[in-house]
Simulated assay, not measured.
Amino acid sequence: MTLEETALARLTGNRLLYLDMLEVLRRGTAQVRRAGEDGVLLYDPPSEVWFVDAATPAALEEMLPLMEGCTILTGHQMWYKDKLAARFGFQTEQICRQSAWLNSQIPAVPPFGGEIRRLDQSWAVWTEEHYSHSFGGVAYMEDAIDRGMLGAFVDGQPAGFIATHVEGSMGMLEVLPEYRRRGIGEALLLAMTAFCMEQGQYPYGQVFTDNEPSLALQRKVGMTLSEELLFWLF
């Protein structure tokens, strides 16, 4: 088998946990740097993210020399988180659960008293100003709009938005405070799920383990959450 075939054979064995890795392979941007029955290492040049899956210490040791210069990574087993943080000098970590729409049917968007529209570049500055977890500046929002950012509008006024991150995960879900508890977050999440499916993308996201409202939202709309944890380091 080729490296990619070997990688797919392992990753499809736990599709929910590895859906982020399967997405970058599906779209053809990922480089398979190492693949075996005991783990897979991918590098995705557009996002500069390393995707680590290591079942054994031996597999991880094979991967480490291949990752020199790593500035951001996501790991799919918690046992090596601290080792990678120390190896590459990472000081920021995020612990998540993978969330995915596993139903083959495209979801319907529930009514919320408004409408969903695709946003254009004129919204880049506004969304950056209103995103509570902004980290990439206006340029990151411009790229997200190019990929497909959806906005919720009530009485013609912007009430929230959602997009996908550069590596493929759904995120940047923001509902303005005055519009919360109206079902807008649910509508946006399902609208983006439908958009991803229509584009042939895997609809998945990653939710911080301490964000109980977001975890509850995922469950409410019918997303499936992984039992296993994964982590980001940067």
Results as ranks from 00 to 15, higher is better:
residue 215 L to F: 05
residue 17 L to N: 07
residue 221 V to G: 03
residue 159 A to E: 05
residue 231 F to W: 15
residue 224 T to D: 00
residue 25 L to S: 05
residue 223 M to P: 03
residue 8 L to V: 09
residue 117 R to D: 00
residue 50 W to Q: 02
residue 45 P to E: 03
residue 92 T to E: 14
residue 19 L to N: 10
residue 39 G to R: 03
residue 222 G to E: 08
residue 20 D to V: 11
residue 37 E to D: 14
residue 202 Y to S: 15
residue 171 G to E: 02
residue 31 Q to C: 04
residue 221 V to A: 01
residue 183 G to I: 02
residue 142 E to R: 02
residue 158 P to T: 06
residue 94 Q to N: 14
residue 188 L to A: 07
residue 156 G to V: 04
residue 218 Q to A: 09
residue 152 A to C: 06
residue 162 I to Q: 14
residue 60 L to A: 11
residue 161 F to E: 07
residue 68 E to Q: 15
residue 176 L to V: 05
residue 155 D to C: 01
residue 130 H to V: 03
residue 186 E to T: 09
residue 146 D to H: 11
residue 120 D to P: 12
residue 198 E to K: 11
residue 87 R to T: 09
residue 3 L to A: 10
residue 172 M to K: 11
residue 33 R to K: 12
residue 191 A to Y: 02
residue 108 A to C: 13
residue 189 L to H: 09
residue 38 D to Y: 12
residue 19 L to F: 10
residue 42 L to G: 05
residue 189 L to C: 10
residue 70 C to S: 14
residue 102 L to N: 01
residue 221 V to K: 07
residue 205 G to F: 05
residue 74 T to S: 08
residue 97 R to F: 15
residue 152 A to D: 03
residue 164 T to E: 08
residue 40 V to D: 10
residue 191 A to R: 06
residue 47 S to A: 06
residue 80 Y to R: 02
residue 78 M to I: 14
residue 162 I to D: 12
residue 209 T to A: 05
residue 61 E to L: 06
residue 58 A to M: 12
residue 1 M to T: 14
residue 167 E to N: 07
residue 41 L to S: 02
residue 233 L to Y: 08
residue 192 M to I: 13
residue 173 L to I: 08
residue 136 G to V: 00
residue 17 L to I: 08
residue 25 L to H: 01
residue 67 M to F: 11
residue 156 G to R: 04
residue 156 G to I: 06
residue 234 F to P: 04
residue 181 R to D: 11
residue 168 G to F: 02
residue 208 F to P: 07
residue 12 T to E: 13
residue 115 E to G: 11
residue 109 V to A: 12
residue 88 F to S: 13
residue 79 W to L: 07
residue 227 E to M: 01
residue 104 S to L: 15
residue 93 E to P: 12
residue 29 T to S: 14
residue 227 E to N: 06
residue 104 S to E: 15
residue 155 D to P: 02
residue 209 T to E: 09
residue 151 G to I: 01
residue 113 G to S: 09
residue 64 L to C: 05
residue 11 L to V: 00
residue 133 H to G: 13
residue 188 L to N: 07
residue 143 D to H: 13
residue 44 D to S: 02
residue 201 Q to L: 14
residue 173 L to H: 06
residue 145 I to C: 06
residue 174 E to H: 02
residue 180 R to W: 04
residue 135 F to G: 10
residue 17 L to W: 04
residue 102 L to I: 03
residue 84 L to W: 13
residue 141 M to E: 13
residue 202 Y to W: 14
residue 58 A to V: 12
residue 99 S to Q: 06
residue 33 R to S: 06
residue 39 G to K: 03
residue 190 L to I: 07
